[in-house]
Design a protein around this nucleic acid. Structure first.
Lengths: 333, 333
DNA sequence: GATTTAATTGAAAAAGGTTACATTTCCTGT
DNA sequence: ACAGGAAATGTAACCTTTTTCAATTAAATC
């Protein structure tokens, strides 16, 4: 019934040339006489021929599609990265297959496998921990992978991020400078190197510099959601914290609001620095002081790096660290 | 060098059967003798064979991939829909190609075309206005399309949304009930039927019921971003508005903060009802009163509807309206 | 044990392109 | 006018599956 899809054969026949020639003009191959090109182009236009990307992908072994594994599109941190990724992907004529993983290791592996089955030309992974299984899949397939906003201590694959350690150190420095001695550090699980290794290290270093002894009660592991803010704030108060560095904006807003709802003045009674500079940080009152990560750029650069990898271009540095700043807004003095 | 990709041929040879048989066991076709199945399965396991989805797509004319056109992943309204879409897609073994359109008509058409070229089995479109060109592409291709959070007055394609007209009417009713006579309506362009037709109608109806005459100065068209909130609020004050119904959460937060920053008490001096119930509405102080749209569900139901369409199942109703409620929180009395 | 009938399996034709290689056409110089 | 090389075009193999249809094998019937 819908046999009306017209193929390269039809064009070739109508134009009186071989399909190879049609293929050439479609792909912009210069080895075609201008008059022939015009003739073919006219037929393509008349027949409204649209090349079948699947067939093309099979024949050329390139799908111009990259897989993007994201914990949750609904999280502004990740969606900002994703936006950067997609824009650059579009610029280089790639499409994005986006898959939510919920940071669930099983889902991650499964999703990666279906992406590879679909023959994506590359993969951008956002998450936190690179499990052994994941790493194994990465190297088993010859498909290039770039991590965005994610670190792999082993540096096996490409990655783009910031220096989380010094960013956290800088944040704590500010709070120390404002006179705090009971500074909390709130992040997701320390199993994730980005938290348990880099950020925590930065936190410890800053404490050390200030000769403040490390207090386990001030280091909290919590999921990154708005609603746990209340509970976290309670814990912070119980531990006697007077300031906190928080690794996620949404969580930070939860903590901020929990404080405000309890009549705590911010930044007078409690100071807060968050880590991502997603849109949210400007939307609270007071506005949140934050590490300014170039979110969009992290995504964009990751995608750009991936294009190079897919092109087998020479790469000077597989791991790129983008600069960050710290924007002291309303939640710090 | 990477000729190590093993195909169905390799499996067939190793297992001593034809590729047809391998294909059958891979696809769970019951017409295979159990012993043969086991034999093939063993080889598949040993060789770690993974079917090539592209070849499969070419042969079967099904890619188990759907295209999703989204204005901006970074907007919580849309990303919430997207999350619903992806979850249901995953449930039905589909993947999502996500493409940002920026609500740019040209981009929309272009993106749709590349999605169709990639032979997606279906398309979910989020946007606002369905241009003629877009509609033409929709019907030219035989690919099923479902609109999510988007209306097509012509109801040519499937769509899932809420009743924007009554939702807006209800919102205005509340403000009227609170004694307001100068109620503003702020949305994006009225060229989009969802605003210019449905919401505006609801707004007018409510005014009429309350015998309030329509005042053009109280009806603003603005882009949906946080940063224009300031300017919009200024306009609202100038027009003498004492309350507003806003069609987008991010914009509403902008307006709210602009008011607060100017020392306007909310809801005492100014009331505000927003429209999407994205996460944001809970994050402001005061929390925003809002139309509660089942965002995730709109996406989920849209995707579910699309699976039916792709399956050529009988559909009772191509247009589904999900229920909404109104949650009067802190920005209304 | 011969026939039917049903269950398995295989051969080969798609599916719609790309591309290496062969062939033909076109120029240029002599 | 013709060799020689470049440019343009065509031929056909290939990419990896699915799927139709025919062929084979096994099971069932009397």
């Amino acid at each position: 019934m819908d046999k009306q899809t017209i193929t390269i054969y039809d064009v070739a026949r109508e134009a009186g040339v071989s399909m190879a020639t049609v293929s050439r003009v479609v792909n912009g191959n210069p080895n075609v006489k201008p008059t022939t090109r015009k003739k073919v182009l006219d037929v393509i236009d008349r027949l409204d021929y649209r090349p079948n990307a699947v067939a093309r992908g099979l024949a050329s072994k390139k799908t111009t599609t990259v897989g993007v594994i994201i914990p949750d599109v609904t999280n502004l941190y990740f969606s900002s990265l994703a936006r950067g990724i997609d824009d650059i992907a579009t610029m280089y004529k790639y499409n994005i297959i986006l898959a939510n993983s919920d940071e669930n290791e099983q889902k991650e592996v499964q999703v990666l496998n279906t992406l590879l089955a679909k023959q994506v030309d590359g993969v951008i992974f956002m998450g936190n921990k690179i499990t052994e299984e994941l790493r194994a899949e990465f190297s088993r397939s010859r498909t290039p992978v770039v991590l965005a906003g994610t670190v792999d201590p082993d540096e096996q694959v490409g990655s783009v991020n910031i220096d989380y350690e010094t960013a956290t150190e800088d944040s704590v420095d500010i709070l120390v400078g404002n006179g705090h001695r009971k500074i909390a550090f709130v992040s997701e699980s320390h199993d994730e190197p980005i938290n348990g290794q880099y950020r925590l290290n930065g936190y410890k270093k800053a404490l050390e510099k200030a000769a403040i002894s490390y207090d386990d009660d001030l280091v909290l592991q919590s999921e990154y959601t708005y609603k746990v803010g209340e509970a976290v704030f309670e814990q912070l108060k119980k531990a006697g914290a007077t300031a906190a560095v928080v690794a996620d904006d949404e969580l930070a807003v939860g903590i901020l609001n929990a404080a405000l709802d309890r009549g705590v003045s911010i930044p007078e009674d409690f100071e807060l620095i968050t880590s991502n500079n997603s849109k949210l940080t400007a939307m609270t009152r007071p506005q949140m002081s934050t590490v300014v990560q170039p979110l969009y750029d992290i995504g964009a650069v990751a995608m750009r790096l991936l294009t190079k990898l897919m092109n087998k271009e020479e790469i000077d540095e597989k791991t790129v660290k983008l600069p960050y700043t710290i924007d002291a807004k309303g939640t710090t003095k």
